[in-house]
Design a protein around this nucleic acid. Structure first.
Length: 218
DNA sequence: GCATTAACAGCCG
DNA sequence: CGGCTGTTAATGC
């Protein structure tokens, strides 16, 4: 996974050694809590293999998903950087292998590597763009559009370089991500399937046309 | 009108 | 069996 992580290129041997000796990886079953909202942030979190969501609950018990993160993604750099408590739960959506890069190593890389700094700036900038896009979608598009854009956002090639076209995600989870009910998501998926943008399978969705999803407006 | 909640039957792993 | 899906009816903004 390290070899395929873009932030590794440009690091020297000392930096690579320190990463290898401090990075920890663990496997989790589906629906496991990897990190809890409110916990002190002691590591940068990477998805070696699997699918996770960044999640929170309202006081009344409603569930919001800020973003999903497929294989190859790294999340939580903002909170590591700010040394703040974790702002959301991290939960696995299917069996997943998760990597933890300790905060100390993260900050040391920031202090010693120009290319690592550039990577983090790019990543933060991309996230900002994605958040702005989310607000636009949220305010302007119909539920069909929200579902289309939520799916497309999982294929951001800057944030998620290794994303596979078949997503093992339930329609209910997609609802948490898109901000719509399960039934409405089901309806939207049939519209998108008719447009040949996705293929709906049992417990999974295959994305056929990412650009088409991104451009879907209604 | 349109989306959500609730409920249920059928299907899949 | 347990979780996911497709459908329908009732309810709410």
């Amino acid at each position: 996974m390290l070899a395929s992580s873009p932030w590794v290129t440009g690091l020297n041997d000392e930096q690579l050694d320190r990463i290898k000796s401090t990075l920890v990886a663990r496997t989790f079953p589906a629906n496991a809590i990897v990190c809890r909202k409110g916990d002190p942030v002691d590591a940068w979190v990477g998805v070696v293999d699997g699918l996770i969501k960044l999640n929170a609950y309202s006081q009344s018990g409603k569930c919001v998903t800020f973003t999903g993160a497929p294989t190859g993604s790294w999340v939580g750099e903002g909170s590591v950087f700010k040394r703040e408590k974790r702002q959301y739960d991290i939960v696995t959506l299917r069996d997943s292998c998760i990597a933890f890069l300790p905060s100390d190593t993260f900050h040391w890389l920031l202090d010693t590597s120009l290319s690592f700094n550039r990577f983090i700036i790019t990543q933060l900038n991309e996230r900002l763009g994605q958040m702005i896009g989310t607000i636009e979608t949220e305010r302007l598009l119909s539920p069909d559009g929200k579902v289309a854009r939520s799916l497309a956002s999982l294929f951001n090639h800057v944030l998620y370089p290794g994303a596979v076209k078949q997503l093992q995600i339930s329609q209910e989870e997609l609802g948490f991500l898109a901000g719509a009910s399960r039934q409405r998501v089901n309806q939207a998926l049939r519209v998108l399937e008719k447009e040949k943008l996705v293929k709906v399978e049992y417990g999974a969705i295959t994305v056929l046309d990412v650009d088409g999803l991104r451009a879907f407006e209604s």
